[in-house]
């Protein structure tokens, strides 16, 4: 007899706080504190919601991975389009920035260029599933995240790339009115990331539309984002509006900004340090004040799945 044992992170739906209440909880407290209810009137945005509830894909869930607290995943965000302050993004990304409806443009060296609504795209891709991946930021901290979405290769098959397509170039939205961080700064907006087509076709490469079985919160890159778990977090570009199949290697935002510190590949590699800190170990988000660091794994623990992509490549130079 097969007995299904629920993991601690597998909470029943009944125990979940209503999402609107959850997102508004601070606003409520603030409004009460300020003696004003003006802030409460703000509307809640909904990202791509098609396909939920998603099914857990147990193939993509390494043993012993304990997902990070939902609250921390939603409240500790690098999203410079809104703020440099990780604690501020949650608030700023939910002040009226609309992530629904949302269209993605897919173009370049492909047979079926198209502009498609995200929900429509999910439908065409055959729905969504849940995978639990490690997430390692270049700043030497890490989380474990249950992502909902579909494999990137599904999209690639859908649009039929030609032989000329060697790279995928992803672009984030550009809307300085909704995203205050896009007003100036040193970054050349919009944010751009890229993968080789072999990397993109790898079974791990994932387009996420949700976390913890719910549509992506705005601050986590709603409504659709890339997830490439063997690379540093900044490669997993958020809120994608355009995917271009190119022949030449795209220049990604961080490499353009600091070529000495960030490269094109950005594979998690404990033996190649950042110029300012070691990458050999990492802080585990949510583990408390006195917790020890965890050893960082080569390719973030996905060596088996991806190391063949980099055979013969000098990883020290191609960081």
């Amino acid at each position: 007899m097969h007995i299904r044992k629920n993991k601690p992170w597998n909470l029943p739906e009944s125990s979940a706080t209503c999402e609107a209440d959850f997102i508004n909880r601070r606003r409520f407290l603030k409004a009460v504190g300020l003696g004003s209810s003006a802030l409460l009137g703000q509307s809640l945005t909904h990202a791509a919601t098609y396909g939920f509830p998603s099914k857990v894909n147990r193939e993509f869930r390494a043993d012993g991975l304990e997902p990070t607290d939902y609250d921390l995943i939603k409240g500790y965000n690098n999203f410079y389009e809104f703020s440099y302050d990780k604690g501020e993004v949650q608030d700023l990304a939910n002040r009226g920035w609309q992530t629904e409806p949302w269209a993605i443009e897919i173009k370049g060296h492909i047979k079926r260029p198209q502009k498609i609504d995200v929900n429509e795209l999910i439908k065409k891709a055959g729905g969504i599933e849940q995978r639990v991946y490690r997430f390692r930021c270049v700043e030497a901290w890490s989380m474990v995240i249950p992502w909902d979405g579909f494999q990137l290769s599904t999209l690639i098959d859908m649009v039929e790339p030609t032989e000329k397509a060697r790279y995928l170039k992803f672009s984030t939205f550009f809307d300085p009115n909704s995203a205050p961080g896009q007003n100036g700064g040193s970054i050349d907006w919009p944010y751009v990331e890229g993968l080789t087509i072999e990397e993109a076709k790898n079974e791990l490469s994932f387009l996420a539309t949700g976390i913890y079985g719910k549509a992506l919160p705005n601050q986590n890159g709603a409504p659709i984002r890339l997830v490439v778990p063997w690379k540093y977090g900044f490669k997993s570009i958020k809120s994608i509006v355009k995917i271009e199949f190119t022949n030449s290697r795209p220049m990604n935002t961080w490499q353009a900004l600091q070529p000495r510190e960030y490269g094109f590949y950005a594979n998690v590699n404990p033996t190649v340090d950042h110029p300012r800190w070691s990458q050999a170990t990492e802080r585990i988000i949510g583990s408390g004040f006195l917790s020890k660091r965890k050893d960082t794994l080569m390719f973030n623990g996905y060596e088996e799945q991806v190391s063949h992509l980099y055979e013969g490549l000098n990883l020290k130079r191609n960081f």
Partner: peptide, 9 residues
């Protein structure tokens, strides 16, 4: 949340 995510940091 920034405090609880990584108090030492």
């Amino acid at each position: 949340t920034k405090y609880f995510a990584d108090p030492a940091k």
